[in-house]
Nucleic acid binder design. Sequence first.
DNA 1: AAGCTCATCAACCGATCGGTGGATGGGGAT
DNA 2: ATCCCCATCCACCGATCGGTTGATGAGCTT
Lengths: 219, 219
Amino acid sequence: MTDPIRVVVADDHPIVRAGIVALLSATDGIEVVGQAATGRAAVELARSERPDLVLMDLRMPDAAAAPGEQLDGSQATARIVEEQPATRVLILTTYETDDHILGAIEAGASGYLLKAAPPEEIVAGVRSVVAGQTALAPAIAATLVRRMREPQASAAPSLSARETQVLRLVADGLGNAQIATALFISEATVKTHLIHVFEKLEVSSRTRAVTRAQEWGML
Amino acid sequence: MTDPIRVVVADDHPIVRAGIVALLSATDGIEVVGQAATGRAAVELARSERPDLVLMDLRMPDAAAAPGEQLDGSQATARIVEEQPATRVLILTTYETDDHILGAIEAGASGYLLKAAPPEEIVAGVRSVVAGQTALAPAIAATLVRRMREPQASAAPSLSARETQVLRLVADGLGNAQIATALFISEATVKTHLIHVFEKLEVSSRTRAVTRAQEWGML
DNA sequence: AAGCTCATCAACCGATCGGTGGATGGGGAT
DNA sequence: ATCCCCATCCACCGATCGGTTGATGAGCTT
């Protein structure tokens, strides 16, 4: 009999981790070896436990880290996949916008499931990914297929992490100087980021940039 | 020894319900008597099981219901509290905006906790609410205190039809002169409308006015 | 008659925005 | 070595925004 699948669970909500741990611990052949509440903790746990798989949420705000040092699920995924090629990452999140999905896949995730999935789909996903396959929720698979067919038509431009960060603060109503202060960069840098955002979204005002980013699932 | 506290758990994500059920079932004196994935199902379960408490999420999209017939957590709370005065509702959600909080409290919820809370806070909350007390996450309590002190700021304001019209065009990225042209009014009039919108929404920029109006369901 | 809300309009001015035209350096791919 | 993307930064300047202070008139309610 083979060794059980060793899993690390990363989610910022304790009650959600409890649900995932309860599900996986009650499943034959799966063993939860650690839990993390932040992206950074997930990376460290993966490093120390060398699990077969990390079940990763995407947004895991870390109150202890500065805004510029937050490590979301995609960034944590990229780190883990880079440092431990034998460890696979399966995303389990509520977010299903194109940029979340593509960001995670591009970061190296081997699967992407939604928290709305039935528990047996999550268990099956864990097994598939550890077996070297890909696990995608049906809606996610459809999104990727659509992207393959219409790479340029459906391709909403992507914003870099910093551009997204700046735009979020614009959406919060901050001016350029306030954003500069919040991110510890200069106002000139904020303006440059915004100019790039405007070009990518094909807009010419910050207000429209925000609403278009919302329409395209970027905010 | 008294009867255990009978609880219904309502959350659209199975894995989250699994976590809550695992937590509560492992707690002495608490018995989970039903689970619901939608607001409507929660109301029906509360009707048939007559639990002491319903642990309720706020956003529970119901794929089987028309948009106009969705029953979110606040609406479900109002129904339950109206039909079964002996059943208390404790909100457990990720949303902590003022309008979510006030909506739930006004609907009759006896408590409001966040999913980010440690599990023991959730258990304590269940016990408090069933004992007739109120359970609020610290951040939520602070919000309510602030509202008590500034009641005039508490009600979500309404925008006049013209104000809404102007704001929609702002959301589309138009400048004041363009809005004036589009609506056949002067730019000075547009500015006056926007000033009133800013006052009502308690913002000082058009971008923030748009995102706040969206948050408050005005756009 | 008085008061309120809404829609309309004006002028002034400081603050902010957005575009232009530059720039350096890091990291990765070819 | 070269190219590309990203993040960072600067100065200048015209355009726009937002706040202030002021105003009239319509329609409705008290």
